[in-house]
Design a protein around this nucleic acid. Sequence first.
DNA 1: TATTGTTATACTCTATAACTATA
DNA 2: TATAGTTATAGAGTATAACAATA
Lengths: 172, 172
Amino acid sequence: MEHRPDPLHESPTYLLFEMVRLVRRTATRMYPGQLRLPHLLVLSCVAQLGPLSQREVAERLRMDPGDLVGIVDALEEAGHLERRRDPDDRRRYALEATEDGRLFLGRSLDDRTRLNETLFEPLAPGEIRLFKELMLRVLAHHDERFTVPDGPGQPPAPAAGRPAGRGSHASR
Amino acid sequence: MEHRPDPLHESPTYLLFEMVRLVRRTATRMYPGQLRLPHLLVLSCVAQLGPLSQREVAERLRMDPGDLVGIVDALEEAGHLERRRDPDDRRRYALEATEDGRLFLGRSLDDRTRLNETLFEPLAPGEIRLFKELMLRVLAHHDERFTVPDGPGQPPAPAAGRPAGRGSHASR
DNA sequence: TATTGTTATACTCTATAACTATA
DNA sequence: TATAGTTATAGAGTATAACAATA
């Protein structure tokens, strides 16, 4: 039992890989059959930001518009959202969450919260906050969706490189 | 651009999901065609821990033995490892890394290091160490592969000091 | 061990249709 | 109208990863 000197254990991306495996294993054990994060993300996005076209959803979530079709199909069929047409621009859909969808979303987010509590049990609340903040800093550096507008948080002043521009590479 | 109150942005597992997407996008941009982490893990495991049977590798890496078949096939075909028989128990294989495989592994780990440096550029070295340590604490709590040999209770304190000598750029 | 098959996710490429703006 | 450009949606195809059933 001595594989400590494994250089991969020093790699944050390897540890991220293992973290995601752990999340998946735990999720399927706690909520078998449930939990499809992309579906949840789409529903959450639509529920929060009123009527949206599929293209807007795809952009906000950085999802492939093609993949969105099946997800919206499933959510519509389950009665969680409605696909109407935008009366002003009949090319686009106007997606809106149903009351049922909002209830489902609430339950799903509660499940998610319990999952997080189980997984991060060994960390203190402050450590969890710190963990999230570190991830948000990394994400913001590469993906403008995560840049904080400014305001209540804390001015991200990591003295070191602050390229000022948003994501140096907006992938695609 | 103001969807800050999104409850999912508060969910560490959602942020992990986004981190992994970021890793994948960055990796395929920096090293297209390369980088299959499971292959790297298997090769690393075999290179470090001498001759191993496929079952031993599967257990150590918590991988499906069935999935291992194709991975070992590929690594063998590429000349990175050899599949011999264990002379003491001819039912099992004795997997061993070739010299070529060790060189390839070294290069791959170097690529991985550069990938990590690019991704975690916005964090200070101490923050990266802290980030890894938090993940290791969570992993150790759910998966005995990550328990540190000496101190099962409280792994290395998240002390701010600890320049940790060479640890700073061993970010593989 | 190996084989086979299934599921989930992600990404790419191509195609069609519906609309907008302009000539 | 006619034409060109944009947007929405769809579908095929590929790739990785995890997992289950069975030989």
